[in-house]
Amino acid sequence: MMPAIMKQGKWAPWLYLLPALLIMALFIAFPTFNTVVLSFMDRTSTQSAAVDCVQGQPCWGIFENYRYALTNSIMLNALSNNALWLILMVPGTVSAGLLFAVLAERVRYEKIAKSIIFMPMAISFIGAGIIWQFMYSITSGGGQQTGLLNAIIVGLGGQPVAFMSTYPINDFCLMIVGVWLWTGFCMTILAAAIKNLPSEVLEAAQVDGATGWQTFWKVMVPLVMPTIVVVTTTMTINVLKVFDIVFVMTGGNYGTEVIANRMFQLIVTDTGRSTAIAALLIVLMIPVMIFNIRRFQKQEEMR
């Protein structure tokens, strides 16, 4: 909120907002409304979803697509996998990104180091799929191992592991790809926030005799907290939407299904179910939205 002494015209805020709001209304809000409508219709969007009900089996009427999204065994697998991704990958990327942003500041090869962590995102155009094939692949016949990890395992005298088709190893392998891909993102945003910290504050802490560790926890983390929350929110969204890694590497087979992959797989053949899954994603966002509003208010009260 503006400082009390600053005046503004009645329409001024809307002049600042209007271009962005118009474009978002057209490109996101309108399709979202469309999505919600379609989620109550059948697979070809011609009749109510209730027509898919089979006699003698559970039926949620017009919410039939939501019954699929919430009770089907593949969707349950996807929901639990997304939960696991949230629990492991969000803290993983944010803490690795923060640690790296803080540490890299203190060495002379900062730019090179940061660009190495950033690189995966820049090369993701062909999909992390091909890259990680050279890490995870297994040769089961008589040939040499062409995946680095299995080559190491076999070199040490072990048996090669089918990383992609063995549950739950495959889930963790996919999450490692996610962390590898997204840590650079967290690092860049957090580094921008750290650079924006007033240097007096950090110097003052050091003059007071705080160790590096204390400065980090007691001074830096609280000051960067708003950005940590922003990055955490963004990573939560990214993890809820994660799809390409799974699609390319396992296709959702072997127990690795995730929500967004299911949505994408059904988008053509069953628009009703696909849009219901998309609507479910939006519902899952509500807690994140509430949390952000609270923080928004708090930040304004504090300043």
Partner: peptide, 18 residues
């Protein structure tokens, strides 16, 4: 080639080349 793991993890193209 490679039993079950070979069937599941060998790409269909590589299966031809083998």
């Amino acid at each position: 080639v490679g039993g079950a793991n070979g069937t599941l993890n060998t790409s269909f193209l590589n299966a031809i080349y083998l």
